[in-house]
Design a binder for these strands. Structure first.
Lengths: 332, 332
DNA sequence: AATGATCATGTAAACGATTACATATTAATC
DNA sequence: GATTAATATGTAATCGTTTACATGATCATT
């Protein structure tokens, strides 16, 4: 490993001068510049980031913690994050937590140990107390999923209203027996979506039937199983609102196995607008989150915090959209 | 930011002793241990990784460069990589290159600058020369996609044979008019799969028709478009082999738009066995790569290199599998 | 009681960079 | 020509660790 002093020796100058050349300092004579540049070339020298960052106490790196890279929902968000990061000279590193709090904490530790300047948390498993603790010393933004009452900014959509809109769409198509496949996790969005679903029913004067409400874990299988259960009910629903597209796909396959037609016998609405929701047959009606923009906004907020431009905590709610497709409306 | 000397001061000992405590050195008296542990707790101290790694010239971190996290194919591989890494005390950080050589090089630079001990490259855009150059100073393993003749180990499947098997499956079902949707990129696997396809046809005494061979870019749309073109041929094929599941899905949707039935009117075979290939309707016949194992093996190979256990370059070819489903065989 | 081993702790040098400050050289001003 | 300003370069401290080596205390051995 060649170091800055190797270069200095080769060029016959001091390490300070080499450092000046590397960092584009103006006060270097043309001849010295040439000598040093040549030495750097010859030795194929790259500054050691550990040394540099240690001295600078700044890394221009940002961690993105996400529960699961295999969830297509996150891909677009990450793209937004990366684009803004790159425009501002930051590198991002993705950390797959697998929804495992131990893994998550390992990455948080890297943050604490200054390996990165800040982080974006996508669906943290940490408690409010832990997050509040972290907020004191670290630059962190919550994206999509967030804990309420934690002094950290978040970027998301209004899940309650979005769910209301989705459910209302089903109601407006004439459905009265509308089931709900939610998620049994600690995330706020799951609750908010359930609340929105219920409010839509109430507002339409439809009774809320507990038997129509069930919970999965965002997976295909949980969508499949829950739908099967719903279809086994004596008074089976004619529509279902799933809080993720993947579960919606599971639900549709379940209905198909029972020889039901979608949307004729069962209308299905998902959430997220992942790529596969329009590739699927039938294409799936869903709520589209502005994933790319969510990512961009989160990264912008993070940079503001890191660079100390804003000390107040700003939360962002971006616009969502109901996208009607064949799984609820024929011919779309 | 509290440092080791803050802790030392608070505990009334030297920094060396604190360091000993942190690193579990045996020669520390119980009382001192207690004092220091308490001070660490009180001050909520975490060692600065930059300082530590700089001194140790070792980071126990590994970079995983992949072209696109939104490709579900990579998720399982990453899982394998992570599991082996964690078992061996390494952290992994994912780097999304977006198939952009500039981004890729940015991450390689981090490697050169000792931010990580090594890297796994999933589908590098770099040339053989560049990779050869890197191999001299860095610990790198190629996974899935690889360049031939580069002195870096790789882990993959035998793409030519796998494609042969897939094509042969279609032939054995009685098809003679078999199209191929490949990929127009620089990757070896694309070529090998085409070669395997052609060899299967030749071996079966079927003429290779250039009109039946076309190229996409692994996307849904490119599958869709190419299939449309193939179906517009005067003598349309009755089967198609796509080098990715996503393109296969595009092809199926294309056939459906023409009111063709899959597999009755058109048999479709994909490649990769991503989750959606069995969620899709019809479920898709495909070649299953042992993604998890590919990841595990790549990580194991990398650790061997980093820790200097093996200096020779070993290449691994893992077993693939043909998975027959409804898109080629009814009722599966 | 002298010797040596063992244990606990401290001192200070590294790791590889950046940068405040000092110094030397040259150019500009009066 | 003396003074000052600007430019180019070097010296050494610093970032937060780890760790080789030194030191001093304790205890067993002879």
């Amino acid at each position: 490993m060649t170091t800055i002093s190797d270069v200095a020796a080769a060029a016959g100058v001091s390490v300070a001068t080499v450092s000046r050349v590397i960092n584009g300092n103006a006060n270097v004579s043309p001849e010295t510049l040439a000598k040093v540049t040549k030495a750097i070339q010859d030795l194929n020298y790259r500054p050691n980031l550990l040394g540099r960052d240690l001295r600078r106490t700044k890394s221009e790196r940002v961690l993105v913690l996400l529960p699961n890279i295999s969830n297509p929902f996150y891909s677009e968000i990450v793209k937004g994050i990366e684009d803004v990061a790159n425009r501002n000279g930051y590198s991002i590193m993705l950390c797959n937590t697998d929804s495992d709090i131990k893994r998550e904490k390992k990455y948080v530790k890297m943050l604490k140990t200054r390996l990165a300047d800040g982080a974006i948390l996508m669906a943290s498993e940490m408690s409010c107390e832990e997050l509040t603790e972290l907020s004191k010393e670290l630059s962190i933004v919550q994206c999509c999923e967030y804990k309420e009452g934690v002094p950290l900014p978040h970027v998301s959509i209004e899940n309650e209203k979005a769910a209301y809109k989705a459910t209302n769409h089903l109601i407006s198509l004439g459905h009265r027996k509308i089931a709900f496949i939610g998620a049994d996790n600690q995330f706020l969005s799951s609750n908010l979506r359930e609340t929105g679903y219920k409010r839509a029913l109430s507002d339409a004067g439809i009774e809320i039937k507990p038997a129509y409400i069930c919970y999965g874990n965002y997976s295909y299988k949980s969508g499949f199983r829950n739908m099967k259960r719903l279809l086994d009910l004596p008074d089976r629903p004619t529509a279902v609102f799933c809080v993720s597209d993947v579960m919606a796909i599971g639900a549709i396959r379940s209905a198909m196995e029972e020889n039901l037609k979608v949307p004729d016998d069962l209308a299905v609405c998902g959430f997220d607008n992942i790529h596969f929701s329009w590739m699927f047959n039938p294409s799936i009606t869903t709520i589209s989150q502005p994933m790319y923009d969510l990512g961009c906004t989160a990264m912008e907020a993070l940079i503001n915090i890191i660079e100390g431009k804003s000390s107040e905590i700003v939360n962002y709610f971006l616009e969502y959209e109901l996208i009607v497709r064949s799984s609820t409306l024929k011919g779309y």
